[in-house]
Nucleic acid binder design. Sequence first.
DNA 1: CTACAACCTCAAGTTCACTTAAGGTAAAGC
DNA 2: GCTTTACCTTAAGTGAACTTGAGGTTGTAG
Lengths: 164, 164
Amino acid sequence: MSSRIAKDLSVGQMADRAGVAVSTLHYYEAEGLISSWRTSANHRRYDRRELRRVAIIRTAQAVGVPLSEIKVMLDGLPDGRIKAEDWRQAAEVWADRLDQQIETLQQLRSQMGACIGCGCLSMDHCPLYNKDDRMAGRGAGPRYWVGGPEERDEMERKADDAEA
Amino acid sequence: MSSRIAKDLSVGQMADRAGVAVSTLHYYEAEGLISSWRTSANHRRYDRRELRRVAIIRTAQAVGVPLSEIKVMLDGLPDGRIKAEDWRQAAEVWADRLDQQIETLQQLRSQMGACIGCGCLSMDHCPLYNKDDRMAGRGAGPRYWVGGPEERDEMERKADDAEA
DNA sequence: CTACAACCTCAAGTTCACTTAAGGTAAAGC
DNA sequence: GCTTTACCTTAAGTGAACTTGAGGTTGTAG
């Protein structure tokens, strides 16, 4: 009992450690977000680093990043054996994304704060007011993460001056 | 055509300005997130400040806050006529929330960054490694915003030392 | 006065991220 | 040897946040 080598984890162990349900891990695997090998009994075994993947998935989700986005980023890292350079690259892309997200939050925060001090309550001359126009998004289903990946259609707020 | 007084908006105008679909506004109204009065023709008319509400809703959503949460906060402000004190209070609650959210993001960011520099690639002696355990969440459906409102069950990561 | 755009309601459909259920295998404990 | 526990698969259900569609009314423009 002196050997403390990092062994691969069963799905139950993964679930425990990551704090997610077993079914969730199955789901993630089906979606190609994590991967495992199988024992002779067809049981999943996870490399320990999959734990980190799950942690990243959950953290990203917690701040509103959809799985599809997460997958794209995780796919950036070549299967299994992660080379340092790949990690670095992927992380950089993400950093931008996160910074953006953080900024959005800070905007919201100050938007609400500023709204108290300024004339927002009586409206009409609020400096923030005209920032309301913005934000598009089309297609079905729920829409997290409004400041999406590529292609955003600008949505010209035309009918603005045309008002009696 | 010299009068440029702020008039109430139709649903179409609101949709244009806020950058959302008309159906979304209907939905928000049905959910009690925004409100309107009706013309004699049963058409919706929105007070201009509803525009701000929509902006806040969308921004909050963009960072992963579910509508239920948003509603709670918006409900904090008494119907229609918003008193400054109420705004202030609500904003304060939110500021905390947002700060928390921002922190999560920064953690994720540095988690990924740090993972490059440290031994994560060869695993085993990563200082971040043991932070993987964490994060619970139960019940059906999608789960945004892991660091939820009240009640979080701690999820003891027991089976840790018990490993041959 | 007739088109037509903009609005209305209500019901049903869709996507995402899961969970639950049903039915089966397999190694471990008594 | 039998039962329990952990795992497996596949299919169907769920909740959130919308969208789409069908069918109907209103009001302005030609």
